[in-house]
Nucleic acid binder design. Sequence first.
DNA 1: TGCTACCGAATGAACATTCAATTAGAAGAT
DNA 2: ATCTTCTAATTGAATGTTCATTCGGTAGCA
Lengths: 198, 198
Amino acid sequence: MNIQLEDFCSKRTAILTSTLELVKEHGFHGTPMSQIAKTANVAAGTIYHYFDSKETLMVELYMYTKHRLGKAMLAGDDESRPYKERFFQYMTNQYNFYIENESSLFFLEQYINSPFAKNYPEKDSDIFKTDIIPFFDFGLENGYFKKIDPRLMWPIIRGTLVAAAHFRISQHVMYSEEDISQLVKMIWDAIKNNNTTP
Amino acid sequence: MNIQLEDFCSKRTAILTSTLELVKEHGFHGTPMSQIAKTANVAAGTIYHYFDSKETLMVELYMYTKHRLGKAMLAGDDESRPYKERFFQYMTNQYNFYIENESSLFFLEQYINSPFAKNYPEKDSDIFKTDIIPFFDFGLENGYFKKIDPRLMWPIIRGTLVAAAHFRISQHVMYSEEDISQLVKMIWDAIKNNNTTP
DNA sequence: TGCTACCGAATGAACATTCAATTAGAAGAT
DNA sequence: ATCTTCTAATTGAATGTTCATTCGGTAGCA
């Protein structure tokens, strides 16, 4: 059977999405396997057909979620457009993904701050490795950004967007297109290179 | 007995600090009360003398930690200095607190993304309510910052600093004073008002 | 006939919390 | 100083529950 991210195995996907929702509400250890099974309309034993343990379920859910985030970020990308425009598109997409997928946002934040992230540092989505990280590297190499540690760039951008999305969700505030582009502009202002003209 | 934040009740404090370390390593539900007791050199029952339940222990640990963060941020503050200088001081202090108190950083992140934060939204440190939030409000009212929702300002700043601190910790990278001030400058560039001269 | 997907009751470990009993310490009386 | 009394602090074994995981079995399908 196909145990890939893009799978049509409905039970496996049901388990993943149920876990996502439940972890958002109750946290990792706060969600029992029995409840995951119930919510996914699946027997408890079935979970262990697809995942070795609760721990690997969480790790695979992380990769699944990160993969979906990556795909969402790349939506509507066009390599022929100017770098800055593509950057804005990426950021807007990321922000929209967070507010349209609250549970993914909460899950990712929890995961990153959990022992799992430390225990499985190599586990990550391919899309990030092959597309998104290189896009930022390109921006750095070509002088679009300040000369800071490239590995610091991504967390900072992410930190800002996540903070904004969290706030937007918790306060039930609706941001207009305008507000979002102002937010992205803030990020751009923060990291753009002021010295040379790229 | 004095159940305040600044207490000399050593057992209570021992329980709090032990919980902080353990939650960093194993997460909320991943740390049993029995282990907290053992690490704090205290009997299991003693925890229930100071805290009603595991849940309230976590909430009170949040307030304790947030209080310490607040105090650290205000260190060396001088109201007579220019606003921008005070801002830089606050940010540098906050960043340094995170890297000097890893477990507090991890705990705060976990807490914010947990159901607790939603269930006890009113629980927060007084220092933030009386000193830190007003400081940012002042900056907004006096045109130092872009005109964005003031409640959005704090999460964005926090998001950036937290991201940088996380990175610094996970990669075992040492930032120089220089690097930190560049980081804070990035934040300042992002949120400062470009239109008028304050 | 064999293989995979799936089920769900059973198992045993781990857990949060309780409580009856013990100690420490303070305040008051002698 | 010493004894008395009262309260708060502390203990850790016992309790009842919840949980992750297992496993013997069923159903469909090649």
